[in-house]
Design a binder for these strands. Sequence first.
DNA 1: ACAGCATAAGCAAGCGCTTAGTCACAACAT
DNA 2: ATGTTGTGACTAAGCGCTTGCTTATGCTGT
Lengths: 198, 198
Amino acid sequence: MTDSAERPRADAARARLLDAATSAFAEKGFHGTTTRDIAEAAGMSPAALYVHHKSKEELLYLISHSGHQDTLRLVRETIESAADPVNALRAVIHEFAAHHAQGHTRARIVNYELAALTPAHSAEISAIRHRIQDEIRALVERGAAAGVFEVPDPAMAAIALLSLGIDIARWYREEGRWTPEDVAERYAEIALRIVGVR
Amino acid sequence: MTDSAERPRADAARARLLDAATSAFAEKGFHGTTTRDIAEAAGMSPAALYVHHKSKEELLYLISHSGHQDTLRLVRETIESAADPVNALRAVIHEFAAHHAQGHTRARIVNYELAALTPAHSAEISAIRHRIQDEIRALVERGAAAGVFEVPDPAMAAIALLSLGIDIARWYREEGRWTPEDVAERYAEIALRIVGVR
DNA sequence: ACAGCATAAGCAAGCGCTTAGTCACAACAT
DNA sequence: ATGTTGTGACTAAGCGCTTGCTTATGCTGT
């Protein structure tokens, strides 16, 4: 049986490969990236990739899966710890936007490389995406039912809110004029306007 | 000298290749699509592609360029024909959203396959994108200066408005519950809320 | 001594693109 | 009308290269 508690060299190599794959996939897309690109960026030979991962697609899956789980957790915990729909929406969009600006590289893979996953992995990831969407929609519906939000179509408002946050991964640049916190603050305010909080 | 007025067979073949490339690029991405995929979908042999186009990248460029030009024209003409900033914003977001929902296949290539263009083509397309962005930002600034929009940061509001429209290409599905017109109407209203029109 | 990390070399398959040529058809001389 | 020739759409075959991945082997820390 292998010792899973202490494998510092192997774990570091695994992480380096994941980091290299994240940068490469974000920059050139999954199909635009070769296994040689990843190995070289991780400072290894092409074959080393297969010592730690069974395929190129597995790297994509690992990045996508952890990214989706992190986002789902962020959304759930932020909503749970708020007292009312107004504060919950302000907080969740703030965190969601900051998360996507800060981690725009990984978020680009999470949101734009879904088509490259195997059918089984794609289905698993889709389920997590639905859970994220359900959290936001339920929140908007809660606010509308309580009369604090004024929205003609809660489902459409929820999609717009999510859409706004996700698309940050496409346009955000570190060299730009805004910090993730700048974007988060403005977007939280925009979110409240979208749901008609006066 | 060739007769450029009448070449129905050749032009039809060119168009079929462009249509096939549009579907394939939108579905699988530029690097995920092979020249054989495109040729087969157009009902031709792989070599036929090169009778009508010099490379696979040229197909991407043609699709991307015409798509960007169409969007720029749509934005400019819609803004020009409106009487004031409120009506201009309502109209331009309505048209922009409808355009991206209706033509989500082409819009997906326009917005998500920029990295696959050659440096020269990429620069040319970038210039058009900037012009589109400038139109929206100028409109928001005009409304803010006139006191009819209430926005803390017009540049950020402009990015959010554009972002909302572009991201429609990612999530819109024909089989979904909304028509392009449904999305356009809701989004026009959301846009006015974002810029603080009471 | 040995477990396991890492590599050099390379395989089968697939890639974008080219070459050499076929075919249908229009223009024109006879 | 008929034979001749030029033209451009289209293809069968395949070239040179790159792809994801494997195999056989060396190397290192404990």
